[in-house]
């Protein structure tokens, strides 16, 4: 479980997060939703210790994020930030291989190579693996970054808008793979999504944020309702059902 208690965060004098307490359940797929600027990325970055903690406490699978050595945390959770551009000129396979670094610290073992090969396969990158990052499309690069986080092979996987740049088929494949991680391997996943129907279709748990506060949390059926969503996005939104899951429609 990821436990967040009384989390506050300020950037340059403005309060970005207001006293947030919540949790990401273990063994579930948790989706963070909310309008632009709600504080989703900030929350995820704080959990992933990409940002120093100012106020409050976070534990990931029992590890206090503020106190656990960063190298140890890297074997417990993998995080993919919203901005993935890198200036280095790396081949896709080299980038994915760095996902294993927390486990071998520069001396890759056979199992590390296997994991890398699996991740490359899983995201359909085999044909591209010898290309440089600046020689592939935005979506392909994004898949390489996700594959790197996958290769890290941690109990927790945190992804900030992983669907960015992905076409419908690859987006669906990613969600299916995440489901598989959760259902078959007992991993836990937290991700930020803007396309709510992905949350509706695949998530076990939804946290809705707005203006640095949590507006609602619970199962998709509880959170993805007309009342909550219209309030969350300040726009009339209707919710139907499809295959026994909520289907969110914005056609007025």
């Amino acid at each position: 479980m990821i436990q967040i208690s009384n989390l506050g965060h300020k950037i340059g004098g403005t309060q970005i997060l207001h006293d947030i307490s919540t949790s990401f359940p273990k063994g579930k797929l948790t989706a963070l939703i909310g309008p632009n600027g709600a504080g989703k990325s900030t929350l995820l970055r704080l959990v992933g210790r990409l940002e120093p903690l100012q106020q409050g406490a976070i534990t990931v699978a029992g590890h206090d994020v503020a106190r656990t050595p960063t190298a140890d945390l890297a074997r417990v959770m993998a995080i993919l930030g919203q901005q993935t551009a890198v200036a280095s000129r790396l081949r896709l396979c080299e980038l994915v291989a760095f996902g294993r670094w927390p486990h071998h610290q520069g001396r890759p073992r056979p199992e590390d190579r296997t994991k890398v090969a699996q991740a490359i396969d899983a995201f359909a990158l085999s044909k591209l693996k010898n290309r440089f990052l600046d020689e592939v499309s935005g979506g392909q690069a994004q898949r390489a970054h996700i594959a790197m986080a996958f290769a890290q092979d941690t109990e927790w996987l945190l992804l900030d808008e992983p669907l960015n740049n992905l076409d419908m088929a690859h987006a669906r494949a990613l969600m299916a793979r995440l489901r598989d991680l959760v259902d078959r391997q007992g991993r836990s996943v937290g991700l930020v999504v803007h396309e709510i129907n992905y949350a509706a279709a695949w998530a076990d748990h939804v946290i809705a944020m707005k203006d640095g506060r949590i507006m609602a949390e619970g199962t998709p059926d509880d959170v993805l309702t007309e009342a909550v969503l219209s309030d969350l996005y300040d726009a009339p939104i209707s919710v139907g059902r499809h295959k026994d899951r909520p289907l969110v429609l914005h056609h007025a």
Partner: peptide, 21 residues
């Protein structure tokens, strides 16, 4: 330390994510 420098070159975010000090 070649790997460490390569990871550093990937940016603060990735480096921290991989547990590099």
């Amino acid at each position: 330390a070649a790997d460490r420098f390569a990871i550093l070159g990937l940016g603060e975010q990735v480096a921290t994510g991989l547990g590099l000090s």
